[in-house]
Amino acid sequence: MNEYNIKAQNITKRFGSEIVIDNFTCDFMPDTLYSINGASGRGKTTLLRILAGLDRNFSGILDIRGKCSVMFQEHRLFPSLSAVDNILELSFEKKDPALTDMTMSTLSSLGFSPEDMKKYPDELSGGMKQRISFARALLFKSDILILDEPFKELDENLRSVISDIILGESKHRTVIVSTHEIPEIFKNSAINIQL
């Protein structure tokens, strides 16, 4: 229980001569919500990429113990797959009716109609793509859930739905969220890290 899922020690990341992450240290524990806060350009996405193991070009020590699922800020949906298939094909090894039902139910709670679920990424709005990307990360069985700006492009109602889901998830795994404005609900429930 006291074993960390990610240990980051003295992480420093430079882009040329510019230091983007300066000596970042944190143990990310299981079943805990972390909110990485900061204005745009403060290195939130860079830090999340390092924590997810996608950027290995940094100095410091990083130990990741467990599987990560990531919601990318740029959505990153596969254009040849429908909205629902972008989740089914990525989040699960094999399709089966129970998983399809679970995916559709999650999408429904995120405001998708059955017609929207069949649409392709080029037919979806930015907010819809954002939610597909969120659902994909959410449904992938992982120890660490990393969400880069999950509240961007969402209305108040969906922000609240997603905040509740994130809080629920943080009871079962490490959840790391980056955001430039901390939702009220996170202020007491999350370990806030200011960049």
């Binding site: 997810a52 996608l54 599987k67 990560c68 699922s69 990318f72 740029e74 990153r76 797959l81 090894e93």
Partner: peptide, 24 residues
């Protein structure tokens, strides 16, 4: 490259990666 990272994170097996990403 961004979709390549997605495939890496979601641990896509080669056959699936071929079908949904490489071939298209």
């Amino acid at each position: 490259k961004e979709l390549s990272e997605v495939a890496e994170i979601y641990e896509l097996k080669f056959a699936k990666k071929l079908r949904i990403f490489i071939i298209p």
